[in-house]
Design a protein around this nucleic acid. Sequence first.
DNA 1: ATAGTACTTGGAGTTAACTCCAAGTCAAGA
DNA 2: TCTTGACTTGGAGTTAACTCCAAGTACTAT
Lengths: 125, 125
Amino acid sequence: MNIGEVAATYGLTPDTLRYYEKVGLIPRIKRTSGGIRDYSEYDCGWIDFIKCMRNAGVQVEALVEYVKLFEQGDSTSSVRKDILVRERNRIAAQIAEMQSTLDRLNAKIDRYEQDIIPVELGYLI
Amino acid sequence: MNIGEVAATYGLTPDTLRYYEKVGLIPRIKRTSGGIRDYSEYDCGWIDFIKCMRNAGVQVEALVEYVKLFEQGDSTSSVRKDILVRERNRIAAQIAEMQSTLDRLNAKIDRYEQDIIPVELGYLI
DNA sequence: ATAGTACTTGGAGTTAACTCCAAGTCAAGA
DNA sequence: TCTTGACTTGGAGTTAACTCCAAGTACTAT
């Protein structure tokens, strides 16, 4: 698969894929004899994983760290796990925060729907 | 309350509060005779609301739009509600996305804990 | 009265994560 | 073979959301 096909498949742009490779967010992609990137299934697996993590707000830097350790082999397994645990916790905390904002927004929308006249601070805004 | 106290109360910096006011994310704050910002309870209510929304990832621009409409009075009520609904839906979608990433991460962490040797794509990364 | 700290402003600088550009190369169809 | 569109690179530009700075003013404690 060339870069355009991969980009279309995963809903990214070729520029983003090159950027990801440049900063080490995905391993270096092999080139054809003409110098064009040829993505393997393994590469696509990484892209899928990275896309999933980025969509959840995991920072590029954390993922770069993970990829780097992964390439260093089995000995880095426990550090890698620590990174995953740390990011998992971050995401869980973020979900909790967003859930409470969601509740607050729903309450506010309800008041808009019931045409409640704002009378005190909590209802005002 | 002056800017330092409000910043400490809400875990923001004075610079951030000035920035929020500058771009219209909170209404303009009244000044003392000496020109120093004096935050009322009403102002703090806004700050609390804005902080909550920002923590959930609602964009500054969307909130500016909301505040602007709010200042225009009751006639903008339904447009304001639409903004809230739109942002509510965005947050709900984002929570769903993060939840699925969380599940994936948890599965991956489990495999790390069980020392499962990566054999195929899904397990590899 | 004075020292010290926190406040004011306009505007410049920073960071993350892309996104775009120019100049050139490769590959597939007519 | 030629055209056309996608690919290559290094590097510059963009956007959002702050964050910092300089020069000056205001309040607070001694």
